[in-house]
Nucleic acid binder design. Structure first.
Lengths: 110, 110
DNA sequence: AGTATTTATCGTAATATTGCAATAAACAAA
DNA sequence: TTTGTTTATTGCAATATTACGATAAATACT
């Protein structure tokens, strides 16, 4: 019924899905790319770079922040965003472990 | 407006987001886990394993198949599903390349 | 104080996703 | 042919997501 049956799956499955999900939007990919490329705090110009309104960008930033992938630091009137390095590594490993569970072999059955 | 502004983003950004997105649901994670663990074709018993109706499972399988992550081979009345090994590696690399763009360093600015 | 700048939040509309019952489709077995 | 078995599809209903205008909140500057 449009509601994901979260409670029917394991914590691990839900956590995996949640991280994949937050990465599953081109705007959030674009935001992360921008922050990664800059490799520094970006104050405000994200809205200029993205083809979305200020309100929409703010919403995507909120989701990325909630997932822990980025940090936002208030600096005067504006806010500086950057990648949360530790969390980024953690998520990378977490997702990779999942992908690595399928062996790199040629012994596919079909 | 609920519609993702796909056309405003690059092909690469959209492709990345699409792969993350298809992985962004616990049911699809569970399906993939089952296929990975079996490391063989699974005929039919997926519905028994998952806490979802046959129709819903079939829908998730369709999405995974469309993304190319799994293959389905008709075998009599039933269908055998298994991981698409080549595509799995390809997607793993593709997503990993994105995650690796953020350097493994401690030189986070904030 | 008043004005400008920047970001967050609220409210709302449009679209997407999830889930399932019912049904269809395809095949096997009797 | 009829019956059962298995998977796909259709047609909803419920919820979630996306997007943005309007507005609020917070701070800086005159």
């Amino acid at each position: 019924m449009g509601i994901t049956k979260t409670e029917s799956f394991s914590d691990l499955q839900n956590r995996l899905a949640d991280y994949f999900k937050v990465l599953g939007h081109p705007a959030r990919i674009a935001i992360l790319e921008h922050l990664v490329n800059a490799n520094s705090c970006i104050c405000g110009d994200l809205v200029d770079v993205l083809p979305l309104s200020q309100a929409t960008v703010s919403q995507h930033l909120k989701e990325l922040k909630q997932a822990g992938l980025i940090k936002g630091e208030i600096s005067g009137t504006s806010v500086c965003y950057c990648i949360n390095a530790e969390k980024w590594q953690e998520v990378k490993s977490f997702l990779n472990e999942f992908m690595d569970r399928y062996p790199n072999l040629e012994d596919s059955c079909c």
